[in-house]
Design a protein around this nucleic acid. Structure first.
Lengths: 159, 159
DNA sequence: GGGATTTACTTGAAGCGACAACTAAATGGT
DNA sequence: ACCATTTAGTTGTCGCTTCAAGTAAATCCC
């Protein structure tokens, strides 16, 4: 066992800040969506992903990939969202194993109603505090990190 | 209700990437720590925060603040870590309501044993993919975001 | 100095996610 | 064609987090 490559002071500060952001940002979004829309961030994200798909419908496997979710988790959540009337589930016509989740009208209305508040929150906590130069840097940096964290680009919908 | 300020294409991409990172990074750390140390990231973080304190002990309220945790959550987790023998809990001598969590020798050994692997993982997924220039930018950006997300600087231990 | 409020936790119940076990349909090899 | 494997999804259980309620000590404020 070799001596670990410890972090420098600068790296350590960067790391503490990044950890703090990854802890606080999700709670912030979670709280806003829960308050204003009664949805968890994950539920919102699921609805948003479906709503942005061609026919407002998506294979569960594809959805799991884009939301970084296990199929198990997705299955539970889809069950709840279906119970709430925001989407329906039906078997794929081309593959008997696969299921497709499709937004209902109520589901579409839900995300149309929730999106503005959510986007406003995102602006407040992410874009407003940064210069446009920093936004470009952040985008570049996150893209770089994703090449390690998500080499197949599942989460950006290219999977 | 006014027209929402939608995101530009560049902002949208930056946002999707940032969300992806905040989803993937925690799972990565979680998995490594669970595998190599049998700890959740939160448990590790709690032990790490205590270990970096003056007497290797910390008030629960202070700990909750630094870990962005509710007191309830912390109370449960401290109970488990105490059960595992990594720390002990005793009442504050100066405030009868307050409790202090202190690392045991086993707890200290635990984080000493776990830290190198964790740091190595952090290097692999965060610092190795970035240039030192980008690390500086990231640190700056996160610092900027924290002034909104955590104006009191609770998480960086200045609260 | 004594009642009202605030602070610092603890506890129990409920809900969500991770994991393992399962079903069923498609694919691959021979 | 047939059996083994892989893929797609469901279900049940356990553990952890959140939320609501409760306890007890400190503080506030006449």
């Amino acid at each position: 066992m070799t001596e670990p490559r410890w972090l420098s002071d600068d790296e350590r500060l960067a790391w503490l800040r990044l950890v703090a952001v990854t802890m606080l940002l999700p709670s912030r979004l979670e709280a806003e969506l829960k308050r204003d829309a009664g949805l968890s961030h994950f539920e919102y994200y699921v609805l948003a992903m479906i709503s942005e798909s061609p026919q407002k419908q998506l294979l569960l496997t594809e959805l799991a990939s884009r939301t970084n979710s296990s199929l198990s988790r997705l299955s539970h959540v889809i069950g709840r969202l279906e119970g709430a009337g925001f989407l329906t589930r039906f078997p794929s016509p081309v593959d008997g194993r696969a299921s497709i989740a499709a937004l209902t009208d109520a589901g579409w209305e839900k995300i149309v109603a929730s999106a503005p508040g959510h986007v406003e929150e995102v602006r407040e906590v992410v874009f407003d505090p940064l210069t446009s130069r920093q936004v470009a840097q952040l985008s570049e940096i996150c893209g770089q990190l994703l090449s390690t964290l998500d080499p197949e680009h599942h989460l950006l919908g290219l999977g």
